[in-house]
Nucleic acid binder design. Sequence first.
RNA 1: GACCCCAUCGUCUAACCUGGUUAGGACAAGAGCUUUUCAAGCUCUCGAUACGGGUUCAAAUCCCGUUGGGGUCGCCA
Length: 444
Amino acid sequence: MQAKVLAARRSLVLRVRFAPSPTGYLHIGGARTCLFNWLYARKHKGEFVLRIEDTDVARSKKEYLDEILESIKWLGMDWDNIYYQSQRFEIYHQQAQKLIEQGKAYKKEGAVFFKYEFQTIEIDDLIRGKITFNELPKSEEVIIKSDNSPTYNFSCVIDDALMKVNNIIRGEDHISNTPKQILMYKALGFQVPKFAHLPLILSPEGGRLSKRFGATSIREYKELGYLPEAIANYLMLLGWSPGEDKEIFTLDEAKEIFEITDVNKTGAVLSLEKLNWINSEYIRASSDERLVGLFEEHLKKDDFLPSWVDKEYMKRIVELFKERTVKLSDLFEKSRFCFYDDFAYDQDSKSILEKDLSSQVKTLATSFSSMEDFNKENIEDVFRSTVKDLGLKVRDLVHPVRIALTGRKNGPGLFETIEVLGKERVLKRLERLISYWEKGGVDA
RNA sequence: GACCCCAUCGUCUAACCUGGUUAGGACAAGAGCUUUUCAAGCUCUCGAUACGGGUUCAAAUCCCGUUGGGGUCGCCA
């Protein structure tokens, strides 16, 4: 009795799944499909199942599986159940046998074919409404291959039916699989689930996101320095909107209001510009501690971090660059001068160095060297009064000094930069600029 | 080619379901303010209902067609 009640409850609860194949890394498109499934399950207090479609034993790899699972978690999702198709071959064979016995399938050339008759098929799509197929290209379909493994359409139907997946949310590229699958549901005596076909993510050139487009896997985006919340946020925005002109929102907020029926029908072009903007918003909103952690992790991985660097120093660098960081990789790139002295002066900054100001910079260095409390405010006071005494404008010295300290003409505020680098290194770098002028424009 | 899906600024979208908005927002672009540069921030500008027919007092919104774009046509998933 108890079991019966449980079984009834089990079929009532909303159940969705994400079914990745471990033959590659988790793709941007797959991640969004996963996201929408997860959101829908959480919104309706349903169950989110992960089903690993590893029937292609030759192409499936543990490395890919691990990465897919890790990416899903990294983006902020979890799952209630996980199944592996490679462990369920027995089930597929039983179901195929059932069809053979009923005369709905037959063996040929070592494979099992499912045979069906033409009929009009209607899909009641949660996103698109009614989709009608008036004809089908074939009249039979392989369900068990000659190597005994099930085909995608067959194992998919069996599993969705037996796992009681009652809402199938997947990419639009599966629409044309749906009629065959519905025929299989019916032949096997299973209840046909509801379908929702998501629009595809398109590349800016039009067409599918392909190899021509730079990064396609979640893992690559992580390595490029995108934050998981930013990617999840951006992906949700592709085809769905929380309304009220809201664009920056978390998974937690979305899972309260997400509705699959609100998803758009139109394919969405991936825009790195918008992703970058969202990422920069999240970076600016991140705590310094978190950024220091990520920064450190990255620099250690590349064996870049000098041993004298401590957490406090990292934090000051983060403060310096946070506001002008789009991706974490920018932070890594732009802050190199904070760790090493061996940078060259940028080609396009050399024009600023054309005018020889060696004596003025010497004066500045002297003023700096006699300072006791080398903090931002004092540095600014000393800098401004020195410049005034020299009869110069602030900008006359700011630009050359920035190049001396960072190698570039653009960067964070000069006085903050001077403070972070510290007196010793600042003086050393000013020396270098002076000798550059004395040697007639040759960098040491 | 056959079958199927889709159509609002360059891009993502709101308004579409339940016809009545100066068709709104964001990214990008351009201009300005601020300023030691860059960035950020603030202000402003540019910019769309693919086309043609209906239905209706009224159409981005409903219907039909055209055009355009996309997807699928594997013993891959």
